[in-house]
């Protein structure tokens, strides 16, 4: 129990996937323009990351390890994530058109989100149990959402601020991301596994 709690805290704050590990920078910068899209993306990521980690963990421990094929993990995981996203899209479209419309383009976009891959890989590398792996995936995706939503909040306000032309757009976004990352550095060393 204690380990699960520390996994949650560590991967939301201390080892935040975006701001400390620098995974998933593309969606972090790409969809953080509006709060609405940021929340949509966050929901989709939490959803996919959790399911992807669950499946990849099972696949790794019950197929790749027994057959001594662990060196195939990256290509297998890519396969899993890509088809899983596709599956989720198909199922969601039927079961909940509202959620499907809400997530929209972000669902397929997640296929190329390296944070999803990283969670799957780290979960096996850290030798987590199945429960720990799933909790880890949820925590990591919440960490991702946290970073994305904070960023969207800041960027919405920055849109209205006066600033020199050279700083406008991507420049100030990158500076903001850097400062945000520095701020999260404050959690460093608070907890380790």
């Amino acid at each position: 129990m204690e380990k699960l709690l520390s996994i949650i805290f560590i991967y939301i704050f201390v080892e935040n996937f975006v701001l400390q590990r620098f995974f998933g920078i593309c969606p972090f910068l790409g969809v953080s323009r509006k709060m609405e899209t940021a929340i949509g993306m966050s929901m989709a990521v939490v959803f996919v990351m959790t399911i992807a980690t669950l499946v990849t963990w099972l696949l790794y421990n019950f197929i790749l390890v027994p057959f001594n094929l662990t060196y195939l993990q990256i290509v297998t995981f890519i396969l899993v994530i890509a088809s899983l996203v596709q599956l989720v899209e198909i199922v969601l479209r039927k079961i909940s058109p509202t959620l499907y419309q809400g997530l929209g383009i972000f669902l397929p976009l997640i296929t190329t989100n390296c944070a999803v891959m990283a969670v799957a890989l780290l979960a096996v590398r850290q030798e987590f149990s199945l429960l720990e792996a799933v909790v880890f995936a949820i925590a990591a995706s919440i960490g991702f959402s946290l970073a994305l939503i904070i960023m969207a909040g800041i960027r919405e306000r920055l849109e209205l601020a006066k600033m020199p032309d050279v700083l406008q757009g991507s420049a100030v976004t990158l500076v903001t991301a850097g400062i945000l990352s520095l701020a999260f550095l404050g959690f460093k060393g608070m907890l380790t596994l």
């Binding site: 001594n68 094929l69 195939l72 396969l79 198909i90 479209r93």
Partner: peptide
């Protein structure tokens, strides 16, 4: 051979599964 078989089977399974799902959940 193991590697090819494993990946092939996994790929095939996912493919089949997706195909079935697409049919089953067709809108």
């Amino acid at each position: 051979i193991y590697a090819i078989a494993a990946l092939g089977v996994i790929g095939l399974l996912f493919g089949l599964f997706l195909g079935v799902a697409a049919r089953f959940f067709a809108v």
